[in-house]
Design a protein around this nucleic acid. Structure first.
Lengths: 215, 215
DNA sequence: CGTAACTGAGCGAGCGCTCGGTCATTTTAA
DNA sequence: TTAAAATGACCGAGCGCTCGCTCAGTTACG
């Protein structure tokens, strides 16, 4: 968690870059808990500062606004999801049924990061547009990894032919069906174990590819 | 729009029930625009009152809190979606390919109501839990309509056998893939026309059912 | 001693919501 | 018939408070 690799565009008063990174990690870690528990708007900057272990004044040495903190949090979450998926892809690369394994690994990442992904769904719209844009780019890059996977499998002949647009849309579908486990958890978790969910959805998704052209 | 059929549980100071309904419709109509444009938290009660055409004082004759208004808005939206889907189901009942037609109609409802559905995704979590619960019930009832459709088609033998749980999950998938058009619109609408989206997704979804048991 | 990091009291804009009051309309009763 | 009384929808100044953010001052450190 807390990759923070793209945070250089958030301005700070503090000179020492290592310190900046350490403190921001501290703040993000405190903030994400509060945001998940109470939401962004009900969380006060004072609460964040206190939970992070320093004063409100210091907090504003590392950020220029409350929204900055939300952006950092969203960015860290996406970084972690991306890390998880990348790992999953290389782990699955040698397997017997690559697609099923990537789906499985991705869904398990969504499961582990459930609350975090939900936070992104709920609070992205509270960001100033400049940063909302960046968050959506992150989302798109992650979907891009799935596009890549599908394209590789397709070109190796293990899937029936699909044009680029279909592959892309399929990747979005997989991504969203993973997220669905997070934003419909209030219902799904009462009726399915994650293993069942993965199994059923994997069958459905593979079915999606299995044949073509109905109309 | 603005069915308002379940609003009796929102308290009011005003005696005349017709008036209450008319005024609340007025307020909801004004509020939904503001919420879509600025979000719930950035919209002030004064703005809502002004846009609805009366004073802040009067507004609080019809509601006890700002959250009440959000609840009314969410409820109206769900009522309208449900109405649209119910109509679609009866319209499609006699068709050649019932499933494809229901999917198409449902997706078109999502398309028409894009901004409204997005609002529900973004602001449901701002509701007090008592009303969030009701909103999620609404969501579930709508998914239930899709379950019903699938079950009917399956039992008529037009689909391969699927157990109850699979049918239910499939219905959730259809629902969420419809919503996906709203909450990934920032990307999808740039690359697909709604007709293409419906066509591609319909093929995918029908594929989901076309065969079974991979593992 | 100077600079970088940290502190927290304080500011003031803005918020949700209240409440004393006005006024048009309806009801009462002489 | 009509004046008095009651009603209820509507109004908006203003209350009490919160919260994001600042800045003058203090501490830590090389």
């Amino acid at each position: 968690m807390y990759g923070l690799h793209r945070i250089k565009d958030i301005p700070t008063q503090v000179k020492n870059p290592e310190l900046v990174e350490r403190r921001r990690r501290q703040i993000a870690e405190a903030a994400v808990k509060l945001f998940m528990a109470q939401g962004f708007h009900k969380t006060t900057t004072r609460q964040i500062a206190q939970a992070a272990g320093f004063s409100i004044g210091s907090l504003y040495e590392y950020f220029t606004s409350k929204e900055d903190i939300l952006y950092l949090v969203c960015d860290s979450i996406h970084a972690e999801v991306e890390r998880g998926l990348t790992e999953a892809m290389s782990r699955a690369a040698g397997g017997r049924n690559i697609l099923a394994e990537v789906i499985r690994e991705f869904f398990m990442v969504c499961h582990r990061m459930s609350d975090f992904i939900l936070l992104i769904y709920q609070e992205t719209h509270s960001l100033p547009s400049q940063w909302r844009k960046k968050v959506l780019e992150n989302e798109l890059r992650i979907t891009g990894l799935l596009v890549e996977t599908l394209a590789r499998i397709a070109s190796s002949g293990e899937l029936p032919y699909l044009d680029e647009r279909s592959i892309e849309l399929a990747a979005h579908n997989i991504s969203v069906l993973g997220h669905m486990w997070t934003f419909r958890r209030w219902y799904l978790a009462r009726h399915y174990r994650i293993e069942d969910y993965v199994k059923l959805q994997t069958e459905f998704i593979i079915g999606m590819f299995a044949q073509g052209r109905n109309d």
